[in-house]
Structure formats: C-alpha cells, structure tokens
Lab assay of single mutants.
Amino acid sequence: QIFVKTLTGKTITLEVEPSDTIENVKAKIQDKEGIPPDQQRLIFAGKQLEDGRTLSDYNIQKESTLHLVL
C-alpha cells in the first residue's frame, strides 16, 4: 500500500502493486475521493509523475507517500 497526502492534509491509503501505472493510481484516487484523474497531479520526491509510467519506474515502494496537487 502507499499513502497519498492531499493539500488539505488528508491522507488516503491505496492498495497498489509496483506494476501499477500512475494512471491506474489516479483512477483509484477517483474511486475513493471522486476527483477526476485529469485534475490530479501526483508528486513524489519533488517530481511530477507521468501517467504512462509505473510506480516501480519511480522507485515508489510500499509505505511511500505521494503528494496530490489539484
């Protein structure tokens, strides 16, 4: 699982696999929060994550925290 922290300070927990794409993660966030993926920007280690890449591409491991910017 990974954590996604929103600007409001809320933390969302997501069940993911390293092979999941960023697009996939955004879809999971939409399921939980109702935020359309095209409004979501995910930041990890100061980098904006691209939809077509996977979590493992960015070396995002379990218990990692991503930041969600709208």
Rank of each mutant, 00 (worst) to 15 (best):
I43H: 11
H67Y: 14
H67Q: 10
R53C: 12
A45T: 05
Q40P: 01
A27Q: 12
I2W: 02
Q39S: 08
I35L: 06
I60H: 01
T6Y: 14
R53G: 07
L14P: 00
Q48L: 13
S19G: 11
A45S: 09
N59S: 08
Y58A: 03
I35A: 04
G34N: 08
T65G: 03
V16E: 00
I22E: 00
L68K: 00
K26D: 00
Q48V: 14
V25Q: 00
T65Q: 06
E23S: 13
L49S: 00
D31G: 09
N59M: 08
L55P: 01
I2V: 06
T13N: 06
L55H: 00
P36F: 06
I29V: 05
T13E: 07
Q30G: 07
L66S: 01
E50T: 07
E33C: 15
L49C: 05
T13G: 05
I35N: 03
V69R: 11
Q1W: 15
Q39I: 11
G9E: 04
I60F: 03
D51N: 13
I60M: 03
T6G: 06
E17I: 09
G9C: 08
P37A: 15
K62H: 15
T65R: 05
T54Y: 06
N24G: 09
L7K: 11
D20H: 06
K62Q: 13
K32N: 05
K28T: 03
V25F: 03
D57P: 00
V16H: 05
K32P: 02
N24C: 14
H67G: 05
V16L: 07
G9H: 05
P37L: 13
N24P: 00
T6R: 06
I12D: 00
T11Q: 07
R41S: 10
E63S: 10
L7G: 11
T6C: 14
R41T: 15
D51G: 07
K32G: 04
L7E: 14
D31L: 15
V69Y: 13
L68G: 01
E23C: 14
K47N: 10
I2G: 01
L7T: 11
Q30I: 03
I12A: 02
I2E: 01
Q48G: 06
L70T: 10
R53N: 09
Q40S: 04
L55A: 03
K62N: 15
N24L: 15
T65W: 09
P36C: 09
I43G: 03
L49R: 00
L7A: 12
L14M: 04
K62R: 09
T21M: 07
K28E: 03
L66W: 02
L14I: 14
L68F: 03
I12P: 00
V69P: 01
E23W: 14
T6P: 04
V25H: 00
L55F: 03
D57Y: 15
P18A: 11
L14Y: 02
I2M: 05
K32S: 09
L55D: 00
L14G: 00
T54Q: 07
I29A: 02
L14D: 01
I29T: 01
Q39R: 12
L66P: 02
I29R: 00
V69W: 10
I12M: 06
T54C: 08
E17V: 10
S19F: 12
Q1Y: 15
E63W: 13
I12F: 12
P36K: 07
P18F: 15
V4I: 13
T21G: 03
K32W: 06
D51Q: 05
Q48K: 08
I2Q: 01
V16Y: 15
D51C: 06
L70V: 13
Q30C: 15
V25W: 01
K32E: 07
V25L: 13
E17Y: 10
N59R: 07
I60N: 01
D31Q: 15
T11K: 08
G9Y: 04
K10H: 12
P37H: 11
Q30N: 09
L42Q: 00
I29N: 00
D57R: 02
T21D: 03
S19Y: 14
S56F: 11
Y58M: 04
P18N: 07
D20L: 05
L66Q: 01
P37S: 13
K5G: 03
T11N: 06
E33F: 11
I2K: 01
G34C: 07
G52R: 09
K47H: 13
L66F: 04
K28R: 08
S64L: 04
